[in-house]
Design a protein around this nucleic acid. Structure first.
Lengths: 204, 204
DNA sequence: GTTAAAAATGAATCGCGGTTCAAATGTACT
DNA sequence: AGTACATTTGAACCGCGATTCATTTTTAAC
């Protein structure tokens, strides 16, 4: 007999992140992924059913990790809503901080999977959005957030804004330091753009 | 001799918007576009060099129109910065209000063109972002906007958030009425999520 | 009514790349 | 030091769909 070398699956997955991220799902060639993984073309099919399933696997893994973090934050009863929102934003950014390719994949190829609405990751994705809604709704109930904000729309606003900046950052990390991005997202979403009319200056 | 029937180019372009929007750039088949345009397959190539150039044409047209509106708004000396930002947001939403397919195209396939960084639309795109920055910077100088907001990041935040909601709206117009979206975007970006600590309740 | 040239057609072509599979290779056990 | 069987290989296969082009249709000029 003979045992699978063990790290091949991971090597293929990592290479796929880079190639999908660089060339896009359709531009990515299986042969290239195999090459970057240091593996024969056919070997890819020992670990994944087909091209599509590689992408599905990567997204399922990614969203599962994000989801775990969110669920943990959301259920903490002693955290105030504002901190929860901050931690969720941090959670997303932390996930990509060390891996620009993953960020590009995340931002660019999600539609690829969203289109047919299938796949394991879908469940985590909708769950995440609902979780965000609940946190906002909770904040409103506790009188910390504005009552005229629509929780579902707000969640999408934050998510969309974060995606866009993640994209810019991944394309040119120098021009968009993640720490600045992090700070600005929070500042804007919490405090808004306008200087309040009648109050002492609030902090960012 | 014989003259081109004249409306074929437009019929093809319109069909392309629908098919690209529905099936995505790579899922879209030329034969299908021709069919929906009521034209033979080969005719598509009388009006466009190839598939890619159809997408380029559509984006160039779209961004040109957006850009014209923005440039007009931005140069108005008598408008206050806040109104300018509002008008820019309105400009984007107006463009898609009557055409969900165009919105899907806009949101999903931009990366397709961004990837090789070429194409006529690129020029209008970067110009638009710079224009947004200038408006924000102007607002800060006039003391209307918070000075600690980074204009470039803010522009991307608004743009990303708008894209995401446009996407949700186009997928399910019922669940996300554009008027609500419009109002919420402005409310959040101007006023933020938090209830100000020491002030009379500000308006949305 | 005839002609000439452009416009339109759509079946055939052709290359690309995802997928397969017969052959080669490595490993454990005897 | 050989056998059995799982893993690995990569060249060949095959379908799909963008693009082409020989043929047909339309129109304008005479």
């Amino acid at each position: 007999m003979r045992r699978k070398s063990g790290d091949k699956e991971k090597r293929i997955a990592d290479a796929a992140i880079r190639v999908f991220g660089r060339d896009g799902y359709h531009g990515a060639k299986i042969t290239r992924i195999a090459e970057e993984a240091g593996v024969a073309t056919g070997s890819v099919y020992l670990y994944f059913r087909n091209k599509q399933s590689i992408l599905q696997y990567l997204f399922a893994k990614l969203w599962k990790e994000l989801h775990v973090g969110f669920a943990y934050v959301a259920q903490q009863a002693d955290l105030d809503p504002r901190t929860k929102v901050e931690l969720i934003i941090d959670g997303i950014l932390d996930q990509f901080e060390k891996n620009p390719s993953l960020a590009l994949l995340f931002v660019n190829e999600q539609t690829q999977l969203l289109r047919d609405g299938t796949g394991e990751f879908m469940q985590y994705y909708v769950d995440f959005l609902q979780l965000g809604e609940r946190v906002v709704r909770d904040g409103i109930r506790k009188g910390v957030f504005r009552p005229d904000v629509d929780p579902r729309i707000f969640t999408n606003l934050v998510f969309g804004a974060t995606r866009q900046l993640l994209h810019q950052w991944a394309r040119a990390p120098r021009q968009f330091p993640l720490d600045t991005v992090r700070r600005e997202i929070k500042a804007v979403f919490f405090g808004g753009l306008l200087i309040p009319l009648s109050s002492t200056a609030p902090r960012a």
